[in-house]
Design a protein around this nucleic acid. Structure first.
Lengths: 339, 339
DNA sequence: GACGCTGACTGAACCGGATAAGCTGAGCCA
DNA sequence: TGGCTCAGCTTATCCGGTTCAGTCAGCGTC
């Protein structure tokens, strides 16, 4: 099956290649009647423009890139990324942009991918995930002048545009809620410590616990996997002054924590209250369903994509705030027993 | 930052553009000494070929496409796709191919995407997921002559290449295992009925149950979501002759089923044995950990990607078999109580 | 009726590689 | 020494769009 080119359209419509190009792009230079005729011919013979030729002459790839840097073993389990991707994708495909995806092992590999994409002109811009403190990717992208939007922050994003959500406020609200239920010993199982949002949440946790005089507040670090989340929970629940409530930095660790609690003979929420960050269907899957800090992740992704397209179009890099995660109380939180 | 082109390399190496092209592509036409000099210059100035220009003149996009057709609400939850994608990706990036991803609502939209990708020459080939019985995508792709590999089967893939795993054998093994434990009333919570692999598993289930004379065997249909899986389990466990073992077509439904059983006061595996299809970290997250039918999904994806690249390279469309899922017994299966 | 002006369109030059065809000089042989 | 081959290049053309500089008809204007 021979693919029609712009020349075929031009010939059939009895005009030049240039006129067809103007017509297709909504540029002035052709009369309305001619434009309609050209568009009709294009539709009739099933013409679509070669992305390669367009990229070459218009110097735009029509694609944006997303490099995922989490190790393969955690990548699949959290629903977060798939939700994010589907949101990004919805926004992009609505504007006929393609999404190019690459899984990388570490930040060096990721920077190498950015460099290659830049050199190959394969993408018009990139979305950056999992912002770390002192993130080496930021200066690398600034140097390349590759349009980018960081998903994360606030802070630490250099001169790049970013989309962020107020995790500090969400965490504060959660601790206040648990404190209001009567909890005094609250623990937090955090994600990887060098991620920027872990840092932000940790600072907020420390601050609110100090303010509410929760002296037994403790944060332990983990790596977002169920294994580590379970292990951390086991340690916490084995301590002399075991917490009566635990906040987990993702849903997978929270579910693992719930299992560990049940395995150790504790009832949830009677003996232990559990809050999960990232409200996904997983949280409603288990018994009791988990109280969770949720937000519309697909919308977050769509927001970031929109922002990136704006940057690609030459608008100044802004830092826009997305929805703040909100607490959805379910069956896994209650006043501590014996209050 | 100005991006170097092949002309810059040529000038600096004191040769023509053509010579550089030959050198970069490992073609004959330049001496080994010159080739090395050119490659050194290219590395030195950080040159990489424009994917657009390459695509235009070599008529190859350097990318393959993957359209995901599951509704957004189930997409994120199952770890399956992320694992598949990371496997596909590993294989592609090793050969400098890019992965273009698109999320679509239904098969019509998916076919439209294929048509657009074909017209835009945006991808060299596509991977097709979630094969259905009488899948309209197959003839559409055959008509477009867009290289494709179907992930699924056997059967129903038309003239397209495919990579499949022997789900029938895996299911048979599982039923035999449960029967050997002493189970006589085995139920199966299946995924969407019009998926080809659901059909294959259902046929195998019927056959083995008949052979083993398990007259109470029953299959109920679901949609892969936790909600539906839980609901189906509740129905099954409320029936007069409730099953003593349930096989779930994915991990998410199995976990939901486990919760429902516990919520109804049944112990697992004492009162009910549970087997999950797709062994993911989720299965080890819950208590008891789930006996599961697992396979290396990333390897499956890599296998499919390799196969697609072969088809793109002009090799005949083959139907290759991947690893058969194998049963990993864990804490969720045991002989039925009161045997 | 010569002039300028505008809208509608054409022709040709690009974009950055791949590649077929052409050229050149060294090496070899008769 | 002339003729031939062939490795090792160069040159030119092409891929399929975008875009800029013209061309030209038609119209109003003084």
């Amino acid at each position: 099956m021979k693919r029609p080119t712009i020349a075929d359209v031009a010939q059939r419509a009895g005009v030049s290649k240039g006129a067809v190009s103007y017509a297709l792009n909504g540029q002035p230079g052709v009369s309305e009647a001619t434009r309609q005729r050209i568009l009709a011919v294009a539709t009739e013979i099933g013409f679509s423009r070669s992305s390669a030729a367009r990229a070459l002459s218009a110097a735009t790839a029509g694609a944006i890139g997303l490099a995922l840097c989490r190790p393969a073993r955690t990548l699949g389990v959290e629903p977060f990324f798939m939700a994010l991707i589907s949101g990004v994708e919805a926004e992009l495909s609505a504007r006929s942009y393609a999404l190019t995806l690459q899984v990388v092992a570490d930040h060096d590999a990721e920077i190498a991918v950015y460099r290659r994409w830049w050199g190959e002109r394969r993408v018009d811009g990139v979305l950056v995930c999992d912002l770390r403190t002192d993130d080496r990717r930021i200066p690398a992208l600034e140097q390349l002048q590759l349009p980018a939007v960081v998903i994360g922050g606030p802070g630490g994003t250099g001169d790049l545009a970013s989309v962020w959500s107020d995790d500090a406020a969400a965490l504060t609200e959660t601790v206040e809620y648990l404190a209001a239920l009567g909890h005094r010993r609250i623990a937090r199982v955090a994600g990887l410590p060098d991620l920027r949002h872990t840092e932000i949440r940790t600072d907020a946790f420390t601050a609110v616990c100090q303010r509410l005089d929760l002296v037994d507040a403790v944060t332990v670090w983990s790596d977002y996997t169920g294994e580590e989340g379970g292990r951390a929970t086991r340690r916490l629940l084995s301590s002399a002054q075991r917490p009566t409530a635990v906040i987990y930095d993702n849903d997978v660790m929270a579910i693992a924590g719930l299992s560990v609690a049940q395995e150790m003979g504790l009832t949830v929420p009677g003996d232990l209250s559990i809050v999960a960050w990232d409200d996904s269907p997983l949280c409603r899957l288990v018994h009791p369903p988990l109280t969770a800090l949720g937000r519309d992740i697909a919308a977050y992704g769509a927001h970031a994509a929109r922002q990136l397209l704006a940057v690609v179009a030459g608008q100044p890099a802004g830092r826009v705030q997305d929805e703040t995660p909100h607490l959805t109380p379910r069956g896994s939180t209650a006043p501590p027993r014996g209050r």
